[in-house]
Computed example of a mutant assay.
Amino acid sequence: MELDETDLALVRELREDGRLPYETLARRVGLSRPATRTRVRRLQESGAVRVVAITHPAVRRLTASAHLAIGTRGAAAPVARAIAGLSAAPFVTLTSGRRSIMTELRTAGFGELERTIEHIRGLDGVHSVDPLIATRHVKDPYLPAGEPTVAPQDETDERILAELERDGRLPFAELAARIGLSPGATRSRTLRLLDGGVAQVVALVRPEVLGMGYLCGFAVRVAGAAAETAERVAALPRVTFLSTCLGGAEVVGTLTAESFAAVRGTLEEIRELPRVREVESWLHLELVKERYDMGPHPA
């Protein structure tokens, strides 16, 4: 899908706040309200953009997470699809490099994390699993900032979250009809959840849509304490995700770039940092799954 400058401006606005009213979007990009609505719907229907609510992991009791590099015997795609079928795996890609699959896991505690990893080890076609246990998410565009200041009160709040996790731009009137409340009560409850940090509505955008079609994962081994190095890596503009971790590396992350030259340049910037001992990298070849409407589900 070809996007012009106005489309790209809309995407940037929706990445910051997926529920911006059409009137506000129209004013910011210089279109009429009907034209803005038409363009946003076209972006969503094309699959280039999905606007969804992402509930804070703490609300779902998802207190443990890990990044797994998975080697396979034979074709990797069937194994990746099997892993993508796990609700504890929000992110699964086919990759280049020593391992053919990378996945992120988010679970309700380390006991469930261990069970999920063991479940993956036992899948047909899995040859090896190298986990990096996340200790701190330093940079994550899909993680609501800070801890929630409120909590879902009842089943109605949970239904609101579930609907917004499927379509973050549902109008209050339609959302009200689905959950059986008045539009006013629905609006009040929804704003309480969003303003209280329970969830945020963002646009999930395919990187190539923004001209940033090169996704590279990397793991960094650090001499000494990793916190300062992690902050410096996270500050690089093309680094879109970063965690500190335990395991074979101290830092794991993703960079999104417009060319192989830009990928190489960012990796060189990381290698030049004072305490960096080694950088291992891989390309994400195919995004198999990216979904963050998660609850505490066992493997």
Rank of each mutant, 00 (worst) to 15 (best):
E2S: 15
L3Q: 04
D4S: 11
E5I: 00
D7H: 14
V11E: 06
R12S: 10
L14Y: 06
G18R: 07
G18H: 05
R19G: 04
P21W: 06
S32E: 09
R33P: 12
T36W: 03
R37H: 15
R39A: 01
R39M: 02
R41A: 14
L43T: 04
E45Y: 08
G47D: 04
V49L: 08
R50E: 03
V52W: 02
I54F: 01
P57H: 09
P57L: 08
P57V: 15
A58S: 13
R60F: 10
T63F: 04
T63I: 08
I70R: 02
G74R: 11
V79N: 05
A80W: 05
A80K: 02
I83T: 01
T93H: 05
L94K: 02
L94C: 06
G97V: 01
S100R: 11
M102C: 13
E104D: 10
R106C: 00
A108V: 13
F110W: 15
F110N: 14
G111S: 09
H119W: 06
D124W: 05
S128I: 04
A134V: 15
R136K: 14
V150P: 10
P152N: 10
P152G: 09
Q153P: 04
D154N: 11
E155M: 10
D157K: 04
R159P: 03
L164V: 00
R166M: 11
R166S: 14
D167L: 08
P171R: 00
A173N: 11
S182G: 12
S182P: 02
P183L: 07
T186P: 03
R189I: 01
T190Y: 03
D195C: 10
Q200S: 14
V201E: 02
P207G: 08
V209L: 09
L210T: 02
G211N: 07
E231C: 03
P237C: 08
P237M: 07
R238T: 13
F241M: 11
C245M: 12
G247Q: 08
G248T: 12
E250G: 10
T256K: 07
T256L: 09
A257R: 08
V263H: 04
T266M: 02
E272C: 11
R277M: 14
E278L: 12
E278F: 12
S281A: 15
S281L: 10
W282L: 13
L287G: 07
R291N: 13
H297W: 14
P298T: 10
P298C: 06
